[in-house]
Nucleic acid binder design. Structure first.
Lengths: 235, 235
DNA sequence: AACGTAAATGAGGAGTGCTCACTATAAGCG
DNA sequence: CGCTTATAGTGAGCACTCCTCATTTACGTT
């Protein structure tokens, strides 16, 4: 039997190999998308053989989930730190919007993977990534509840719907940006969306007439009449 | 050389074959998703060989696009007819929301395919489906512009953002429904979302002044006038 | 009845994710 | 230092994928 010639290789600590694999995978997934990326390509970029990847990750899907989880955990932690410094319902809502937009704009490719690829994985909801994602959007609901408690927010608003409108709205709005066809003004969009959620699109109800002033004038007129003087000034 | 035995087949008009293929494909895509559906399976369900599909459709992606296009055109047409009967900005916004929710709930699987699979296809934006989709969401923007013209809507609202918030919000909100984990109250959600977009989440502005007190004062002034004396005393 | 055309075929190519029997290596031990 | 051992690492190969195309068939027309 012919001897099988195998090329030599270096053994590396598990953690380092995983980091290399994840780096290669992240770049490939980001630039080419999930389906267009092959495990063979990732292995080559990471300088190992295909089989090695399966020593650390169950399968391709698992690899993507791990990558997105690491990224999302960072994003979430940054958000939580940020929010502690801000008070007032409106400012906090604005901060959540701003922060989320920033994260999506900073890593549009990973965000797109999360939006478009992961969501329809079977068992996504049994995933740790899903749990983190829930926690992440949960923050907005907590802020709204504080707002209700402090009287700034109507107590009858549908909380989960508001949450979905904010995050779904951002997702939709940024999708053109993700496709590279448009640019986004981070601050302007944050302000606009915050404003939209807070006061809606309807024209503000006509400000109530200043009844006090009117009565004051009436009184002055009455006084003049009482004083017996017919008329004072024309116009 | 051994003769290749081929089974007999029936020739059918192009249109009928295509209808059969699309039916089989639609069912398979709907129940199993895009990636989990194989062309071999579709061919078998349609009672033909795999190669025949490629006589009518460029590739698997094209087949899905055609199916979603047919469905979406129907949805759009129904919407347009519906909207003609309704007047008033708020009622029209509410109708758009209600109709879109209905369509998504009626065909959750196709909606999910549109949301999750299609969007990240390369060249999606060069697609007819994309154009129809633009037209479809465009209707909301037109309604908002009418609202601005009629004075019902603030003229400074960011139109595309409102559009994204409505459709993105719906998408997000029904994603739990699409996964089969929750149910949706069509009318309640329509009302809530419409309300949210129209007036936001903030508590309504300043309470009206105390009219009673003002009227009392007016009456006192009138009494004074009648009595012609500086003090009149109320009743 | 023969023909031409277009429908239909299915083996096979190039690629995929993934497995597994196997080998090479570094760390721990004497 | 060698010896053992656990395990990182391999890569041929399996079962599958989408898709092509030379070939075969059925049908409307003449």
């Amino acid at each position: 039997m012919a001897e099988v010639v195998r090329k030599s290789f270096r053994r590396r600590p598990k953690a380092e190999r995983m980091a290399e694999i994840e780096l290669a995978a992240r770049q490939a997934f980001s630039t080419k998308g999930y389906n267009a990326t092959s495990m063979a390509q990732i292995a080559e970029d990471a300088g190992i053989s295909e089989g090695t990847i399966y020593k650390f990750y169950e399968n391709k899907r698992d690899l993507l989930l791990v990558i997105l989880l690491r990224w999302f955990e960072d994003v979430r932690n940054a958000h939580q730190l940020d929010l502690q410094k801000i008070s007032g319902t409106r400012a906090r809502v604005r901060a959540i919007i701003h922060r989320h937009l920033s994260a999506v704009i900073a890593d549009p490719d990973l965000a797109r993977l999360l939006f478009a690829e992961i969501r329809d994985f079977e068992y996504y909801r049994e995933t740790e990534l899903y749990q983190i994602s829930r926690q992440y959007t949960r923050v907005l609901i907590d802020v709204l509840k504080e707002g209700i408690a402090s009287g700034e927010v109507r107590p009858d608003i549908p909380l989960t719907l508001v949450r979905d409108v904010v995050f779904g709205g951002i997702e939709h709005h940024v999708s053109s940006f993700l496709s590279g066809y448009a640019d986004i003004d981070l601050n302007a969009v944050s302000d606009d969306l915050c404003d939209l959620v807070m006061v809606g699109i309807t024209v503000p109800a006509a400000p109530p007439p200043d009844i006090e002033a009117v009565v004051d004038r009436l009184e002055r007129v009455a006084d003049r009449l009482e004083a017996g003087k017919p008329e004072g000034g024309g116009g």
